[in-house]
Design a protein around this nucleic acid. Structure first.
Lengths: 165, 165
DNA sequence: ATGTATGCAAACCATTTGCAATGAC
DNA sequence: GTCATTGCAAATGGTTTGCATACAT
């Protein structure tokens, strides 16, 4: 009945099978990381997963989070994105598919939304010698906030420190 | 007459004005880096710029290449891309606009092409509270090479070392 | 003359790795 | 019991920074 519930179950099954097929072990750490990740509706960082687990008093090393995330990527459960400004985000692949990203080249903020109406268009789109599974559309430009803040440009000239995270 | 020539001139002018407006100096290093970059028709790495200048017996420090590239980014002459697999590429903005990227999630290879027919479509596309300057379309999937090489999957299980560069 | 840009080397920081200890099978 | 996985700490590598020197203005 509950679609979110069945979706998570499907993911869990996919991950279990992935581990089984590769003869990889089903450990408490991998389980905890998977559970944390499977609940995300928005993009997340590796650190946020680690932090949240620590907050729940479940200790995992950063290295294990990296390792497990690599498995989740390979199992096609999550997707990794590296933005122009250096930010690295992960996202459930189911949530990442067919998304539109608006990236402001002034302030580096990223906004995203899903646009179902693009599905049809890209289902028909020809990609020679390539079998697409999903797509992302990135628009680079100026957000309305920056548009109306002309001074921004001057503030930004020595901008490196601001940019990261 | 020669469109490539005028295009490069336009870039040079844009860069000069950028420097002048910000009261930044016009140095031999910045000039050499700009000249190298302005000729690129394909995406390039920071290292390739540095290496090519060294090969021409023009010595610049890596730090200066980083600095200048930051200026070129800010001047909107070049664009930076970070792919999911960690590869960082730069590209002339004029060459980067409205491009389609095909990214293989198995082997991490990136192919790109330009599709003029998308111009029309995206000129009309509504981006709420955002003023787009250019877009990129990323398709994630399997390239034909990987499609027909089933063993790939097994080879890749311990894949980290292969992935980077 | 003045103060910005450069080069170098050291610092940084996210990510990876090596290895001994742990625990899944 | 065996061998993969973990945690820790050390290593790595791309990028940034600090500072003395060089040079554009």
């Amino acid at each position: 009945m509950n679609s979110l519930h069945t979706e998570k179950d499907a993911l869990k099954k996919a991950f279990s099978e992935y581990l089984k097929n590769r003869k990889l072990r089903h450990t408490a750490e991998r389980d905890a990381i998977f559970k944390n990740v499977a609940l995300k509706k928005e993009p997340f960082t590796l650190d946020s997963v680690h932090q949240q687990l620590e907050d729940e008093n479940f200790h995992v090393s950063r290295a294990s989070v990296y390792n497990t995330m690599e498995l989740l990527l390979d199992a096609k459960i999550v997707v990794r994105r590296r933005f122009e400004n250096g930010v690295v985000q992960y996202e459930l692949r189911s949530a990442a598919e067919e998304q539109v990203y608006l990236i402001c080249t002034e302030c580096n903020k990223v906004r995203k939304f899903r646009d179902e109406s693009l599905d049809e268009f890209f289902k028909r789109y020809k990609t020679p010698k390539f079998y697409p599974e999903y797509f992302s559309l990135y628009f680079y430009g100026i957000c309305s906030r920056c548009k109306y803040c002309v001074n921004n440009k001057d503030i930004k000239s020595k901008k490196k420190t601001i940019d990261k995270k």
